[in-house]
Design a binder for these strands. Structure first.
Lengths: 331, 331
DNA sequence: CTGAAAGCGCTTACAG
DNA sequence: CTGAAAGCGCTTACAG
């Protein structure tokens, strides 16, 4: 391995001077900076991040905590977040929260991460408390938690849900069902509340037997739709907790030989790229997930660099994207 | 931060003894191991990976180099690879190879990765050479390169392609087109060669105008299908370089108002989960991508731990999965 | 079986 | 403006 010592020798300066010169420390003269840069280039030297991390007491690596790496939702979080972190000089490390793996907080301190983005926190999770105890900076992504104050980036479902439901109600839907996300996530709860609120304004309500809950995954939608429609008097519209759930529902409908939207209407939430495919055309609620993901990257970096700044909580607006899965119910 | 020094103080031993005890060094007595473990537990101590990395001269973090994090193919690589690496006590770090970012080899040494998995190497890439120059262990994933010898895990397309083509030819397809992957990847080339070989055996060939090439992404399939079918005398079957390309083709067909497989048959390669959706039912070539991804994790770890072992190159077999996108062409 | 010493590659007061 | 010294949290010969 080639180190700053090697560069120092070649440039004829001391090792600390190499360190300063390469970080463009104003106290170093231009002339020696020049010499050091040339030596570094000649040797193909780049400062070692591990030495630096140990020395300054923190790394430039942030963890992203997720539960389900196969879930396509996360691909669209990871890509922009990774890109933004890289731009800011940080690295992205994936952490999955599973029963087998070490508890998140321990993992983070043991691996020397400087901060973490929590993308799958449940309402009752102890992770935020543990992180706080250990003094690890973190931000909530697409989640919040009452227990611990922290930066958060979330979505306000209200507008999108309202526009969607008003379209659906206008088309004649009265009997509405739902396959919501997990009750123990702020996201799931918030979307559910938005639905109840808007329906209530229109004098409508979800019948208890028309509602299902489950993790935000394909299977939840797949099984949920079968459960809701395998009855004499099914709902005419099924709202889904997110697009991945809706994709499961859409495919279940196809398996049941049901035409969407002629036999049943289906709605999603997230507007993932897949949802706009010609073969899918899912009517859904959209927001700027790319920008949210980048914003989370910026927030965690800001938090790491200035731990005492007041917490920020940007909230992203939503809008309805009408495509081909909501139509008037059969008379 | 709580360190081995703190644990030492509490346990009444020296700091190095803590280090040894926690790594279960046989030279430490059971009694003091016990005492040290208790102290560590009481303080919530876990050895700091950064200190360790600096001390032993290498980290336990392996990089996965990809070009396109949004591509769903990679989600199905990242998840099992991450899981297996974690099981082996290693971390997964994502590296995207883009013009903006620092060259891969520099990134790797600067960030102190112990090894890397190359999942998107082109045939002419200089990355393998650079890594070799710097003495960084790496393994090719779903790729190989002539330039530098290294561990590799790849797929043998031959059997799957043969089974698929024999089915298609048996159904009556003679005029066959293709949207292959990039010519400058071993994977693209190998699959293309397999197609030519099998067709040749059957006295068939691809007409030059029925062939397109492009990156392994949705757009390649989407645009490729339009280009191939927007003619008086189009092919009756379009082979795609992989499933993501085929998904693009399938959707393009839908947009053109073409029924698959009635108006045109389409085939993929990879058998991603999406391909088995009721709404997709893509006929494709399957292999064990999960196991391949785990195997790559095992190979890079083995290489890091025993740099002088002879290179391994497991090759995974393929098989045809007939679903609903290949049928007899219209008479 | 255990401790004192040295060192991994950096950064950062402290002198000069 | 630059260097010598100390230290970040570990591991690893080396003594004993």
């Amino acid at each position: 391995m080639i180190t700053s010592r090697d560069v120092a020798r070649l440039a004829g300066v001391s090792q600390p001077t190499v360190s300063r010169a390469l970080r463009d420390d104003p106290k170093v003269s231009e002339a020696t900076k020049q010499r050091v840069r040339e030596a570094a280039l000649a040797l193909g030297y780049a400062p070692n991040a591990i030495g630096r991390a140990l020395s300054v007491g923190r790394s430039t690596r942030v963890g992203l905590v997720v539960t389900d790496l196969e879930n396509q939702f996360y691909a669209h979080v990871i890509a922009p977040m990774h890109h933004e972190l890289e731009r800011l000089g940080y690295e992205l490390v994936l952490i999955t929260e599973s029963s087998e793996s070490a508890p998140v907080a321990e993992h983070v301190t043991a691996h020397g991460l400087c901060g973490v983005v929590l993308a799958t926190t449940t309402v009752e999770s102890v992770v935020p408390v543990r992180l706080q105890d250990r003094g690890v900076p973190f931000v909530y992504f697409n989640r919040t938690s009452q227990s611990v104050q922290a930066d958060a980036v979330t979505v306000d479902p209200e507008n999108g849900v309202r526009e969607l439901l008003e379209d659906a109600i206008g088309k004649g839907h009265r009997r509405i069902g739902a396959i919501f996300g997990p009750r123990n996530t702020s996201t799931g709860e918030q979307r559910e509340n938005a639905v109840h609120a808007v329906l209530d304004e229109h004098g409508l309500a979800l019948a208890h037997r028309d509602v299902r809950h489950g993790p935000f995954d394909f299977r939840t939608g797949h099984e949920g739709l079968r459960a809701l429609l395998d009855r004499a008097d099914p709902p005419t519209l099924v709202l889904c907790g997110n697009d991945v759930v809706a994709l499961g529902a859409l495919n279940a409908a196809a398996e049941l030989g049901l035409a969407v939207p002629d036999d049943v209407s289906i709605a999603g939430f997230d507007d993932l790229p897949t949802s706009s495919w010609a073969l899918i055309r899912l009517s859904t609620v959209a927001y700027d997930l790319d920008e949210m993901s980048r914003e989370a990257a910026r927030l965690i970096v800001a938090r790491v660099e200035r731990p005492d700044a007041p917490p920020a909580h940007p909230v992203y607006p939503t809008r309805y994207v009408a495509r081909a899965t909501i139509a008037a119910p059969r008379p």
